[in-house]
């Protein structure tokens, strides 16, 4: 008599019937709209940023150094511009990464862990960036740092 081997499951396939009833998610809805609107805004903000930093600087014979940043951040317009660019690009990128992790990491513990690390690291960087833009004092003297 031949013994039948138990078929190996090739893919996990959780049945939706076993899941709780679906419920509307305002959070997911918010991020769905945020990704599209911030994407549109970033096209303008990022292209403007690239134009100033890489085209205009060359055309006007300027140099990107501490004095250049000082002169730009002396105006509230450029501070708000850079602040918007920083916050939108950061949230857009981090939410994109969150979505990709959600798509590709199926193990629940691993997913929470990776998401946690992503949020902590990106949170620190975002706050540091915002603090610099908000608290930068244009009257500060240039200090020779390791990158200067």
């Amino acid at each position: 008599m031949t013994t039948l081997r138990r078929p190996r499951v090739i893919y996990t396939n959780p049945s939706r019937a076993a899941r709780p009833k679906p419920e509307a998610s305002g959070t997911e809805r918010f991020w769905w709209y945020f990704m599209r609107l911030s994407g549109l805004a970033l096209v303008i903000l990022a292209l403007g940023h690239m134009f100033i930093m890489h085209v205009l600087v060359v055309l006007t014979g300027d140099e990107i150094n501490f004095a250049f940043v000082q002169s730009r951040w002396g105006s509230p317009f450029w501070r708000i511009y850079d602040f918007a660019l920083l916050v939108l690009a950061f949230l857009h990128g981090v939410n994109g990464a969150r979505v990709v992790i959600g798509d590709y990491v199926n193990h629940r513990t691993a997913r929470s862990l990776i998401l946690g690390v992503l949020l902590v690291i990106s949170g620190i960087w975002l706050v540091a960036g915002m603090a610099i833009i908000i608290f930068f004092d244009p009257s500060t003297q240039s200090v020779a740092g390791p990158l200067s």
Binding site: P22, E23, A24, S25, T27, E28, R29, W31, W32
Partner: peptide, 13 residues
């Protein structure tokens, strides 16, 4: 139906 579609595993994905 829209409630079901607005689930995190619905249209947003």
């Amino acid at each position: 139906r829209l409630e079901i579609m607005a689930d995190p595993d619905g249209v947003w994905r």
